[in-house]
Protein backbone atom coordinates (compact mmCIF):
# COMPACT_ATOMS: atom_id res chain seq x y z
CA UNK A 1 0.00 0.00 0.00
CA UNK A 2 1.03 3.60 -0.49
CA UNK A 3 1.23 5.91 2.53
CA UNK A 4 -1.63 5.80 5.02
CA UNK A 5 -3.21 9.25 5.34
CA UNK A 6 -5.13 10.36 8.40
CA UNK A 7 -6.15 13.26 10.63
CA UNK A 8 -4.48 14.78 13.66
CA UNK A 9 -6.53 16.89 16.06
CA UNK A 10 -4.60 19.18 18.40
CA UNK A 11 -6.86 19.89 21.38
CA UNK A 12 -4.40 22.47 22.67
CA UNK A 13 -5.47 24.72 19.82
CA UNK A 14 -9.14 23.91 19.22
CA UNK A 15 -11.59 26.57 20.42
CA UNK A 16 -14.83 24.95 19.25
CA UNK A 17 -15.54 27.50 16.57
CA UNK A 18 -17.32 24.93 14.32
CA UNK A 19 -15.64 26.17 11.15
CA UNK A 20 -14.54 22.61 10.27
CA UNK A 21 -18.10 21.27 10.57
CA UNK A 22 -19.57 23.93 8.32
CA UNK A 23 -16.74 23.81 5.78
CA UNK A 24 -17.28 20.07 5.44
CA UNK A 25 -21.00 20.52 4.88
CA UNK A 26 -20.78 23.28 2.32
CA UNK A 27 -18.01 21.65 0.28
CA UNK A 28 -19.70 18.26 0.28
CA UNK A 29 -23.16 19.61 -0.46
CA UNK A 30 -24.59 18.34 2.81
CA UNK A 31 -27.85 20.06 3.64
CA UNK A 32 -28.42 21.70 7.01
CA UNK A 33 -30.55 19.68 9.37
CA UNK A 34 -29.50 16.35 7.87
CA UNK A 35 -26.22 14.62 8.66
CA UNK A 36 -22.72 15.67 9.61
CA UNK A 37 -19.49 13.98 8.53
CA UNK A 38 -17.41 15.93 11.04
CA UNK A 39 -18.30 17.01 14.54
CA UNK A 40 -16.54 19.00 17.22
CA UNK A 41 -16.89 17.07 20.46
CA UNK A 42 -16.53 18.55 23.93
CA UNK A 43 -15.13 16.70 26.91
CA UNK A 44 -15.83 18.36 30.25
CA UNK A 45 -14.57 17.60 33.71
CA UNK A 46 -14.45 19.25 37.11
CA UNK A 47 -16.81 21.74 38.65
CA UNK A 48 -17.01 25.48 39.01
CA UNK A 49 -14.74 27.39 39.59
CA UNK A 50 -12.15 25.09 38.00
CA UNK A 51 -13.88 23.11 35.29
CA UNK A 52 -11.98 22.04 32.19
CA UNK A 53 -13.27 21.96 28.64
CA UNK A 54 -11.49 20.07 25.89
CA UNK A 55 -12.55 20.27 22.27
CA UNK A 56 -11.74 17.76 19.56
CA UNK A 57 -12.86 17.63 15.95
CA UNK A 58 -13.47 14.14 14.62
CA UNK A 59 -14.71 12.36 11.53
CA UNK A 60 -14.03 8.97 9.98
CA UNK A 61 -10.85 7.38 11.31
CA UNK A 62 -9.87 5.76 7.98
CA UNK A 63 -8.77 2.76 10.03
CA UNK A 64 -5.93 0.49 8.97
CA UNK A 65 -8.33 -2.41 9.60
CA UNK A 66 -11.73 -0.90 8.97
CA UNK A 67 -14.53 -2.85 10.66
CA UNK A 68 -17.05 -1.30 8.30
CA UNK A 69 -15.39 -2.78 5.24
CA UNK A 70 -15.28 -6.21 6.87
CA UNK A 71 -19.00 -6.39 7.59
CA UNK A 72 -20.45 -4.76 4.48
CA UNK A 73 -22.58 -7.41 2.73
CA UNK A 74 -22.78 -5.42 -0.49
CA UNK A 75 -19.07 -4.81 -0.93
CA UNK A 76 -19.78 -1.09 -0.99
CA UNK A 77 -16.92 -0.10 1.30
CA UNK A 78 -13.29 -0.24 0.31
CA UNK A 79 -9.94 1.00 1.53
CA UNK A 80 -7.88 2.69 -1.17
CA UNK A 81 -4.47 1.26 -1.93
CA UNK A 82 -2.81 4.56 -2.70
CA UNK A 83 -3.67 6.48 0.47
CA UNK A 84 -5.62 4.25 2.85
CA UNK A 85 -8.73 6.45 2.70
CA UNK A 86 -11.87 4.36 3.33
CA UNK A 87 -14.59 5.16 0.81
CA UNK A 88 -18.16 4.00 0.19
CA UNK A 89 -19.75 3.39 -3.21
CA UNK A 90 -23.25 4.68 -2.69
CA UNK A 91 -24.51 2.86 -5.75
CA UNK A 92 -23.73 -0.48 -4.11
CA UNK A 93 -24.85 0.46 -0.60
CA UNK A 94 -28.12 -1.18 0.47
CA UNK A 95 -28.51 0.87 3.65
CA UNK A 96 -28.46 -2.14 5.99
CA UNK A 97 -26.59 -0.24 8.79
CA UNK A 98 -24.21 -3.16 9.53
CA UNK A 99 -21.31 -0.75 9.18
CA UNK A 100 -22.76 1.53 11.82
CA UNK A 101 -22.96 -1.33 14.31
CA UNK A 102 -19.46 -2.48 13.53
CA UNK A 103 -17.74 0.91 13.71
CA UNK A 104 -16.29 1.57 17.18
CA UNK A 105 -16.68 5.31 16.60
CA UNK A 106 -20.27 5.52 15.34
CA UNK A 107 -19.11 7.19 12.14
CA UNK A 108 -21.50 5.92 9.41
CA UNK A 109 -24.59 8.07 8.82
CA UNK A 110 -27.33 7.48 6.28
CA UNK A 111 -29.19 9.51 3.66
CA UNK A 112 -31.50 8.46 0.83
CA UNK A 113 -28.41 7.97 -1.30
CA UNK A 114 -26.82 5.49 1.08
CA UNK A 115 -24.20 5.46 3.83
CA UNK A 116 -22.34 8.73 4.09
CA UNK A 117 -19.05 9.59 5.81
CA UNK A 118 -15.84 11.51 5.45
CA UNK A 119 -13.83 10.70 2.35
CA UNK A 120 -11.06 13.24 2.98
CA UNK A 121 -12.77 15.45 0.37
CA UNK A 122 -11.78 13.09 -2.45
CA UNK A 123 -15.39 13.28 -3.62
CA UNK A 124 -15.28 17.05 -4.07
CA UNK A 125 -12.02 17.08 -5.97
CA UNK A 126 -9.31 17.68 -3.37
CA UNK A 127 -6.01 16.14 -4.55
CA UNK A 128 -4.50 14.81 -1.37
CA UNK A 129 -1.68 13.14 -3.29
CA UNK A 130 -0.57 16.61 -4.39
CA UNK A 131 -0.54 17.88 -0.83
CA UNK A 132 -3.94 19.60 -0.97
CA UNK A 133 -5.81 19.58 2.31
CA UNK A 134 -9.38 18.48 2.98
CA UNK A 135 -11.51 21.58 3.52
CA UNK A 136 -11.94 21.11 7.28
CA UNK A 137 -8.18 21.33 7.68
CA UNK A 138 -7.79 24.21 5.24
CA UNK A 139 -10.46 26.25 7.01
CA UNK A 140 -9.39 25.79 10.64
CA UNK A 141 -8.57 29.32 11.87
CA UNK A 142 -6.37 28.12 14.73
CA UNK A 143 -4.42 25.30 13.03
CA UNK A 144 -5.98 22.76 15.36
CA UNK A 145 -6.62 20.16 12.66
CA UNK A 146 -4.10 18.51 10.40
CA UNK A 147 -4.11 15.89 7.64
CA UNK A 148 -1.41 13.97 5.87
CA UNK A 149 0.62 10.77 5.85
CA UNK A 150 0.64 9.26 9.33
CA UNK A 151 4.40 9.47 9.72
CA UNK A 152 4.33 13.21 9.06
CA UNK A 153 1.48 13.60 11.54
CA UNK A 154 3.41 11.66 14.16
CA UNK A 155 6.29 14.07 13.70
CA UNK A 156 3.92 17.01 14.36
CA UNK A 157 2.33 15.25 17.32
CA UNK A 158 5.71 14.62 18.92
CA UNK A 159 5.95 18.36 19.60
CA UNK A 160 2.90 18.12 21.84
CA UNK A 161 1.57 15.88 24.59
CA UNK A 162 -0.01 12.93 22.80
CA UNK A 163 -3.50 11.76 23.72
CA UNK A 164 -4.26 8.10 23.14
CA UNK A 165 -7.34 6.95 21.28
CA UNK A 166 -8.76 4.28 23.56
CA UNK A 167 -10.74 2.05 21.17
CA UNK A 168 -7.94 1.20 18.78
CA UNK A 169 -8.76 -2.37 17.75
CA UNK A 170 -9.40 -1.19 14.19
CA UNK A 171 -6.15 0.80 14.20
CA UNK A 172 -7.61 4.24 13.49
CA UNK A 173 -5.50 6.56 11.34
CA UNK A 174 -6.04 9.34 13.76
CA UNK A 175 -3.82 11.15 16.22
CA UNK A 176 -4.70 13.53 19.00
CA UNK A 177 -2.81 15.74 21.34
Amino acid sequence: MGKQYGFYADTSRCIKCWACEVACKQWNGIKAGTIARRKVHEIDSGKFPTPTRTFISMSCMHCAEPACEKVCPAGAISKREEDGIVVVDKNKCIGCHYCFFACPFGVPEYTDAGMDKCDACLGNGVKIDEGEMPHCVATCPTKALHFGPMDELREMQSQKTAKKVVSDSTRPSFLAS
Partner: peptide
Protein backbone atom coordinates in the same frame (compact mmCIF):
# COMPACT_ATOMS: atom_id res chain seq x y z
CA UNK B 1 -13.08 29.53 1.05
CA UNK B 2 -10.57 32.00 2.41
CA UNK B 3 -8.45 33.59 -0.33
CA UNK B 4 -4.81 32.49 0.05
CA UNK B 5 -3.65 35.52 -1.98
CA UNK B 6 -4.94 38.04 0.50
CA UNK B 7 -3.09 37.40 3.74
CA UNK B 8 -6.15 36.65 5.93
CA UNK B 9 -5.65 35.50 9.53
CA UNK B 10 -2.04 34.36 9.91
CA UNK B 11 -0.86 35.48 6.48
CA UNK B 12 -0.50 34.61 2.80
CA UNK B 13 -1.52 31.06 2.01
CA UNK B 14 -4.25 31.05 4.63
CA UNK B 15 -7.53 29.65 3.32
CA UNK B 16 -9.12 29.76 6.74
CA UNK B 17 -12.61 31.03 7.45
CA UNK B 18 -14.86 30.82 10.49
CA UNK B 19 -18.22 29.00 10.65
CA UNK B 20 -20.03 32.14 9.52
CA UNK B 21 -17.71 32.67 6.58
CA UNK B 22 -18.30 29.06 5.53
Amino acid sequence: EGNPEAGNNYGRGSKTLCAKGN
